[in-house]
Nucleic acid binder design. Structure first.
Lengths: 294, 294
DNA sequence: AATCACATTTTATCATAACAAAATGTAATA
DNA sequence: TATTACATTTTGTTATGATAAAATGTGATT
């Protein structure tokens, strides 16, 4: 057996790309452009496009290339919509997270043990374990095996996480290097407005979560300081895992999006320290309400 | 061939353990206790002790175990002193860092390429690459190969790093959960005093660096917030890499240690916000002086 | 001049087997 | 009873060869 192909993921990426660039029916999709964009060679792009052709999303013209067969916004990506059942490595990753949160593991596990449980070859297992280690909830022991860390993923550190986020984001906004990103603000406004105007009723949990994270990461990116952004991205990965288990209280979303818009208002009228203070209470406010099962 | 043994590392660890616990000649060293301490089984402890016996540091009594043959403080660990030439994985890691900093790599490299260059089996190479990825200066590409990130390890982000540290450490100290650690303070005082009273002239660069890092991490640990501590530890790993290349200005050390002691003074007389403010300028002050070659 | 289509090279993953080290169970000893 | 010494089991690293995917070079087409 060989590795599993990139093309499914690339297909999804292309659809997302087409949508977010508001491309229209008939637009050309050059191989090299897409390849550079996704940081792969032309080969996997080719096979992804071929599969998209079978689905009628793009049209192939011999010796000329691939062209969009429909308008970008008209595409609804079946695979990623109903494909909630994550494929490939992600599936295993989520199963491990689940099993960990429901206490099915001893603190210490061996690689062989995990290979048997999840029926995964070692190479792939290690990739996943390293990802988890990067997120900070498992670590390699000096001898054999891996050890789950209790520290993250607990109620206590859940709250600590909110404190950390509130402080980092507020301070990032107060840095002298902070610069508003007009384009980012505009797009954030669109998303938040849409979410507030009824979107909160039908968007999927993942979409809502992503919109929220994107907003906060966009703000921190304005700080112009890589380390602040990195710290936030890192903690958001963990958060995703824990909040997956929480039922979203959709009734709170209108208030949340209103607060997000308020922050943008303040920034755009150059009231940065007010915005930073408000951001702090905004984040800490969310902490008080949510309650994870763990 | 099989994996390389843990015992050299464990030998060093045991020596460090004996020293830091101020153990005396004749003290007993139970296998299980050491095993638990280092999170391994008794097997590698056994072989480490056997090697320490050959070096005359411990004495074996049949069916009774191993006993210290000299006083803890009297041991000078030849292997780790002159053993500046790091062994095993660390050696490769440092070579990669060097080669990267001196611009010997294209941005994108394949695993096979690196295996050929450093003559390392894939398993070990991957371990090292994942460690580097965790530190944030390389990342796996979606297809084949890895890509060095420019962002960290540059002059700009070097300065950003100082800003980040200053903010995080200051804010950590201001958290309501912050609690002084009497024991930690005492030990920090000892080290800093020793370093200030002439230690700065003969301590190795690594020792000085470690003393400094330990001080700051100890302070952040008092915050009682895992995430703050984690963020500082993470950035310190990177710092170590960059500052390796800088010649330490030893004449500055007395001032630095004096400032460290001053911070402890302020904290112990319950002037926390003053301490936090001073800590901030202390860190930013260091940033202005040092200049990395990169 | 771009871009594609196709052919070729390079790469990483997987299965397998060998082996040394790590982990562990237990009788022997202090 | 606590700890070691020794025997046994389990584990993870390594080398090797097969294979499919990714990367790339180049002539053909627009």
């Amino acid at each position: 057996m060989a590795r599993n192909s990139l093309s499914p993921r690339i297909s999804t990426d292309i659809i997302e790309f087409v949508k977010s660039n508001a491309m229209r029916k008939g637009d050309h999709l050059p191989l090299q452009m897409l390849a550079d964009n996704f940081r792969v060679s032309r080969a996997p792009i080719m096979s992804a496009l071929q599969k998209l052709e079978e689905r009628g999303i793009v049209r192939a013209e011999p010796n000329r290339g691939y062209f969009l067969a429909v308008n970008g916004e008209a595409i609804d990506d079946l695979e990623s919509e109903n494909g909630q059942a994550a494929e490939g490595d992600d599936a295993i990753y989520l199963r491990i997270a689940d099993d960990r949160l429901s206490g099915k593991f001893a603190e210490r596990v061996s690689e062989n043990e995990l290979m048997r449980i999840y029926e995964v070859p070692r190479t792939r297992l290690l990739k996943i374990l390293h990802r988890i280690a990067d997120e900070g909830w498992i670590e390699r022991l000096p001898g054999n095996g891996w050890s789950f860390k209790q520290t993250l993923m607990s109620r206590k550190s859940y709250e600590e996480g909110y404190v950390f986020r509130a402080v980092i984001e507020q301070q990032a906004m107060l840095l002298p290097t902070f610069q508003s990103d007009a384009d980012g603000f505009r797009r954030a406004r669109e998303t938040q407005t849409e979410l507030g105007n009824g979107g909160y009723e039908h968007w999927s949990r993942a979409e809502i979560f992503k919109a929220n994270n994107d907003f906060h990461e966009m703000l921190v990116a304005c700080s112009g300081n890589e380390f602040f952004l990195d710290a936030i991205k890192r903690i958001n990965k963990l958060r995703r895992l824990l909040e997956y288990q929480i039922t979203i209280d959709r009734s709170r979303l209108p208030k949340q999006t209103a607060e997000h818009l308020h922050i943008l208002d303040l920034l755009e009228s150059d009231r940065r320290s007010e915005a930073a203070a408000f951001l702090y209470t905004h984040i800490m406010g969310a902490s008080r309400i949510k309650t994870p099962k763990v």
